[in-house]
Simulated scan of single mutants.
Amino acid sequence: MLLKTEIYHIKTIASLLFISVLSTSYLHAQVIDCNAAQPASIKKICHSNFKSLRHDLNAHYLTAYLVTDAPTRLIDDSNKLWLNFASQCKNTSCLKAQLNDRIEDFNFFTSMNQSLTQHYLKYENGHLAKTPVHIQIHQLSKDRIKIEGLAYRDPNRKTDAQTESLLAYTTPDKKNEILDNEHQCKYQLNFQKAILEIKTQQKGCDRFTGVYRLYD
């Protein structure tokens, strides 16, 4: 049986290890620290009106960083894109909505099983595309694949016009040719190791065309 002093020492060591993990995560995670010098994309969020939402955002970000089975680099890069997107807001209600949406994103990364999902972000000239586009390829079963896309447009638009979506279902042997159920757009997908290229011959369907990088 452990003595009280031994139990105390074990608890102390466990607490120190936990704090160490949290500290390491804070070093790597991009929590918003309004006491430090910040780029223009964050200054709006540092307004006192958003103090409570900022606290919730940072807490959800760190939780996602600690427990998600999605690539943490995906969380980092998608957060950079989100900050640039949210910085386009022209009023308080727009920015509050974007903060709440991002908290929901972190909940998704935390609660959903990401092990059967491949995530791709759009790149242009070797860098993350300024207009964010996120492709997810879900392995629903051995013979069933779900492909989802989300292209961001303008946070100042009405809620249903801020983004454009793509949704397609296919099989492993036919995933190079898909039909978007949302807009009846046909796309050609070319998978090359960590790169995905999406093309289309249809006019008005080019929102999701381009080169994407796989996060694994």
Rank of each mutant, 00 (worst) to 15 (best):
Leu3Glu: 13
Leu3Asp: 12
Lys4Ser: 11
Thr5Ser: 15
Glu6Cys: 00
Glu6His: 05
His9Thr: 07
Ile10Phe: 07
Lys11His: 06
Thr12Val: 01
Ile13Leu: 08
Ile13Phe: 04
Ala14Gly: 02
Leu16Val: 11
Ile19Asn: 10
Leu22Tyr: 02
Ser23Glu: 02
Ser23Pro: 00
Ser23Phe: 11
Thr24Val: 15
Tyr26Met: 09
Leu27Gln: 10
Leu27Met: 07
His28Met: 09
His28Arg: 14
His28Leu: 14
Ala29Met: 06
Ala29Trp: 01
Ala29Ile: 05
Ile32Asn: 08
Asp33Glu: 11
Cys34Arg: 04
Ala37Pro: 04
Ala37Ile: 13
Gln38Ala: 15
Lys43Ala: 12
Ile45Glu: 08
Ile45Phe: 05
Cys46Ala: 10
Cys46Ile: 06
Cys46Tyr: 10
His47Ile: 05
His47Pro: 00
His47Met: 08
Ser48Ala: 14
Asn49Trp: 05
Phe50Asp: 01
His55Gln: 12
His55Ser: 13
His55Met: 05
Asp56Pro: 02
Asn58Glu: 02
Asn58Ser: 05
Asn58Cys: 03
Ala59Leu: 13
Ala59Asn: 09
His60Ser: 14
Tyr61Asn: 12
Thr63Glu: 10
Ala64Glu: 02
Ala64Asp: 04
Thr68Tyr: 06
Ala70Glu: 02
Pro71Leu: 05
Pro71Arg: 04
Thr72Ser: 07
Arg73Asn: 05
Arg73Asp: 09
Arg73Gly: 00
Leu74His: 08
Ile75Gly: 02
Ile75Asp: 04
Ile75Trp: 01
Asp76Gly: 00
Asp77Cys: 01
Ser78Phe: 04
Ser78Cys: 00
Ser78Asp: 05
Ser78Glu: 03
Asn79Lys: 12
Asn79Leu: 09
Lys80Tyr: 06
Leu81Ala: 15
Leu81Gly: 08
Leu81Phe: 03
Leu83Ala: 10
Leu83Pro: 01
